[in-house]
């Protein structure tokens, strides 16, 4: 029989600790596949965040560094500047990248660090039990917005990829979603381009991925896909928001 789909060597054999239906696993797999397909496993230094994906160093087959809350991009910067020959990526949640580590993210983007950030947005703090995130939607009930997020007192959800399009050193910015097989294929395409941007030394590349949190959203995994599609997608800019240009303004 011809294998159509088998496990990538870019991931270890360790089973994921994520809740049933959590789409972190899909994103891990896409990254693992690309590390293998692009022949990067032995050349990569990944940086893990704090949050649900804070143990992801156990899953990726490459060398990994565990960062502190929000500091993954700074750690990645330090590693990349020390070893410019290595492929360096960060894997971060929305709290990590858009709240406690917002300054690090935007500053690394402004410097055009040759690193790739994968930003997983599930509109909630999953690891700690479902508190409000910088990306939580207006009206969304979380354990720290029990009556729903209201803009008056808690402000508005932050669309980080949209902001990053305004930062010169951020060369590739995409916002994708892993809520369907088609979406997953597009997400992989975006990640591949982001990786290539780094390999080509063009600047900072950033891929935001809308992801689910069935447990803390209080829905089953299939309902979670629908919640993502109907509630989250309308609130966040989607697609390849910024692509590198060559002289003459054409996309490469």
């Amino acid at each position: 029989m011809k294998p159509i789909f088998t496990k990538t060597k870019g991931l270890t054999d360790r089973p994921f600790h994520y809740c049933p239906g959590c789409t972190h696993g899909i994103i891990h797999r896409l990254i693992g596949e690309l590390l293998e397909e692009m022949n990067l496993i032995e050349k990569t230094i990944g940086v893990a965040p704090v949050g649900c994906s804070g143990f992801c160093e156990n899953y990726f087959a490459c060398d990994m560094i565990g960062a502190a809350h929000g500091r993954a991009v700074a750690v990645a910067t330090g590693a990349k500047r020390a070893r410019p020959d290595r492929f360096v990526f960060t894997y971060q949640g929305d709290g990590d990248g858009a709240s406690i580590g917002l300054a690090e993210t935007i500053s690394a983007a402004a410097r055009g660090e040759r690193i790739t950030s994968i930003f997983v947005n599930n509109a909630i703090y999953g690891m700690t039990g479902g508190q409000m995130a910088p990306t939580s939607l207006i009206g969304q009930k979380t354990s720290t917005s029990p009556y729903g997020r209201d803009a008056e007192t808690m402000g508005f959800p932050l669309d980080l990829p949209k902001i990053l399009t305004q930062v010169e050193g951020a060369v590739y910015v995409a916002s994708v979603s892993v809520d369907s097989p088609q979406g997953i294929k597009e997400a992989k395409k975006a990640l591949r381009r982001a990786f290539q941007v780094q390999l080509d030394g063009l600047g900072y590349s950033f891929v935001s991925i809308l992801s689910t949190c069935p447990t803390n959203w209080g829905v089953n995994p299939v309902e979670a896909l629908e919640w993502l599609q109907t509630k989250m997608k309308p609130h966040f800019a989607l697609g390849e928001l910024k692509v590198p240009t060559i002289e003459g303004g054409d996309a490469v």
Binding site: I45, V47, I65, A67, A68, R71, A74, V75, A76, T77, G78, A79, K80, R81, A82, R83, R86, A103, E104, S107
Partner: peptide
């Protein structure tokens, strides 16, 4: 390499990154 970080918080974690890769 000299790199001016955006803050001392970022600076110490850049140190972490470089130290973690063995430099």
């Amino acid at each position: 390499t000299y790199l001016q970080a955006e803050s001392e918080v970022a600076a110490i974690y850049m140190v972490y990154g470089a130290g973690a890769v063995g430099e």
